[in-house]
Amino acid sequence: MEVVDPQQLGMFTEGELMSVGMDTFIHRIDSTEVIYQPRRKRAKLIGKYLMGDLLGEGSYGKVKEVLDSETLCRRAVKILKKKKLRRIPNGEANVKKEIQLLRRLRHKNVIQLVDVLYNEEKQKMYMVMEYCVCGMQEMLDSVPEKRFPVCQAHGYFCQLIDGLEYLHSQGIVHKDIKPGNLLLTTGGTLKISDLGVAEALHPFAADDTCRTSQGSPAFQPPEIANGLDTFSGFKVDIWSAGVTLYNITTGLYPFEGDNIYKLFENIGKGSYAIPGDCGPPLSDLLKGMLEYEPAKRFSIRQIRQHSWFRKKHPPAEAPVPIPPSPDTKDRWRSMTVVPYLEDLHGADEDEDLFDIEDDIIYTQDFTVPGQVPEEEASHNGQRRGLPKAVCMNGTEAAQLSTKSRAEGRAPNPARKACSASSKIRRLSACKQQ
């Protein structure tokens, strides 16, 4: 084909351009004929944790799935940006308080904090938690009735009371019990989460009196709706648990309003109706937990002794299953770290194939690490110290990083047969305790 000078094309009309061969290198194709290559998922490591896909996002930050490269346990990490926390009232204080509380709590029905990582340079905090497959609110939203069968609701409620009793025994008032803060594992274990607005009572406090509340409006008791200066913290949790039980068994809320002012007005009056299909035992329990006067409201001991709580409820309806993943529609909620794991395991070791967030990740503290002497050669063979940054567990980050890069360049065919977990650990520049 004859090559045409581009400067001469402006002298031709459209018809003349076609005659000189423009149609031979300008093609129009339908979008259905285009085959897009999927974007390669680059592996990203935060300390010893391999990052997966997004699980959810809230006002405080994002939650992603991660894999512990040492234990191969599935975890969830809450990623918090200090810049964003400053824009939220009491944001930083709530996060630090939640970390302090979770560090000393150990119960099967309370979410466990596994690790805390802090990135000084990017001003990011990573709260590594045990993995929960789904939230209770997500399960309720997945069915038209917006409720659980009585047998399933009873099982979840009993676990909620177990976890709540443990928190109260530790002198902690949750203040925000609701389905949105109750998570579930694949085995059906309920976990109380989000202790950001919780309050730890003084060890020598005479009672459970509280003065502040930041919980969700629909789950607040009349004493808070009416603006009382002080109130019983434990009875606030009992009320919120009662509203939660009402919601998961009926699909409704005892109090509603077009806006928060109308909602608080209705809560302050204390008038509500219980659907007739709840039955006398459940209705009596709800009335005891939603008692207007805090002094007359049920205690956890009274809830445990109630006939509806103690009764064994046979399954009359099919239980609400864990819904498919909202993004991938995966009904099994498979591990989202698998594509990243395959990338590390299947590809040659190259620095361009993975990302390490930083050479140094500070753990379990908000301060910069200490310094240790770096050896410097002298005339008599002895070495003197220069400062060298280290990880919180004493690992020399720069030395590990250099060693990792040197190993990656060394030709050794046997290394390709290593397991995925050992490869992740070798790529991680800074081991965590």
Rank of each mutant, 00 (worst) to 15 (best):
P413N: 15
D355G: 15
N380I: 06
G227V: 03
G91M: 03
L164N: 01
R28C: 04
F255H: 05
H107M: 02
P149M: 06
L164I: 08
Y126F: 03
Q100G: 08
K44V: 05
S69V: 03
P275D: 15
F255Y: 09
M51G: 07
I248G: 01
E342G: 06
L45F: 07
C132P: 00
C210D: 11
L341A: 13
L160S: 02
E351S: 11
E293M: 06
G10L: 15
E33F: 04
Q123T: 09
S428A: 07
D68N: 10
D258Y: 12
V143T: 14
N393D: 06
K191V: 08
C158R: 12
L160W: 01
L113Q: 06
T189N: 02
L427W: 13
L190I: 06
T244L: 06
R74H: 15
S213H: 15
I79G: 02
K124Q: 15
N412I: 08
S428L: 04
A410Y: 11
M18A: 15
G215R: 02
L72S: 03
Y253L: 09
A200W: 04
K64A: 14
E14P: 15
I46R: 05
P281Q: 13
A43G: 04
L400T: 07
A420L: 15
G135E: 12
Y246C: 02
Q302P: 00
E291M: 15
E14L: 06
I177L: 05
L184C: 04
K108Q: 11
P254S: 03
E349A: 13
I46Y: 09
K83S: 15
L427T: 14
D141L: 15
S232P: 05
E121F: 04
E375S: 11
R211S: 10
P6S: 13
G15S: 09
G346F: 09
L45A: 04
Y292I: 07
L54F: 06
S325E: 09
G394M: 15
D162R: 13
K82H: 07
A206N: 15
K423A: 03
G381R: 12
L183F: 05
S404W: 11
H107Y: 01
L341T: 09
A410S: 11
S142T: 12
M125A: 07
A198Y: 06
A43Q: 00
R383M: 14
D194F: 00
E342M: 12
L182I: 14
R301F: 13
K83E: 12
T367Y: 13
N94S: 09
G188W: 05
R86L: 04
T209H: 10
A397G: 07
A414E: 13
R40W: 09
M127P: 04
V77D: 00
P294S: 03
G61A: 10
D350M: 15
S193R: 00
G257R: 03
G163S: 02
L252S: 12
I274C: 05
Q305T: 12
L117T: 04
V116H: 08
G242H: 00
Q159G: 07
R103T: 10
K96S: 07
G370R: 08
P294D: 03
I99R: 03
R384H: 12
R40E: 11
I424T: 12
K311R: 11
N393C: 13
D208V: 06
G233N: 08
A76V: 06
K431M: 09
S307L: 12
L164P: 00
R384W: 10
I361H: 08
V390E: 12
L80Q: 12
F264G: 06
S19V: 03
Q433R: 05
I172W: 02
A273P: 11
N393P: 14
L50G: 05
H313V: 02
I267W: 04
R409E: 14
S213W: 07
I361F: 05
F255T: 05
T24R: 04
Q170D: 00
D348I: 11
T186S: 07
A93R: 14
S404M: 14
D162A: 04
A398Y: 09
K269L: 12
G394S: 12
M127T: 10
I322R: 07
I424L: 10
L183E: 01
I172F: 05
H174T: 15
P326A: 04
A398K: 13
D284P: 00
I161W: 00
K146W: 02
S31F: 04
L263G: 05
R211E: 13
H107P: 01
G408R: 14
I46P: 02
C391H: 12
F219S: 04
Q137V: 09
K311W: 06
I360K: 10
E199P: 04
T209W: 09
L263F: 04
G215C: 06
G279N: 14
E138Y: 07
L167G: 01
D207N: 03
T185F: 06
I300C: 04
G408L: 14
R75L: 04
K96T: 06
K97G: 03
Y126V: 04
E349D: 10
V243P: 00
E349G: 05
E165K: 05
V368F: 04
N380W: 06
Q305S: 05
L427R: 14
R426V: 15
E120C: 02
Q37C: 01
E396A: 09
D343L: 05
L113H: 04
Y118Q: 13
M51I: 08
S213I: 05
I303M: 02
A43W: 06
L67G: 03
L353V: 11
K81A: 15
G370S: 13
G135Q: 14
T212W: 11
W239M: 01
P323T: 10
L290P: 01
M18S: 10
V372F: 07
D229W: 02
R104L: 11
G47V: 02
A377R: 15
A318L: 14
Y156W: 01
G91A: 06
S240C: 11
E223R: 05
Q7Y: 08
V66W: 03
N380Q: 12
R104S: 04
I177Y: 01
S378P: 11
Q7G: 03
D208L: 11
A76I: 11
P321I: 13
L72D: 13
L9M: 06
N119F: 08
T189V: 10
F204W: 10
K122S: 15
L17Q: 15
N247E: 10
F354K: 14
A273R: 07
D53P: 13
S232M: 02
V133P: 13
L245R: 00
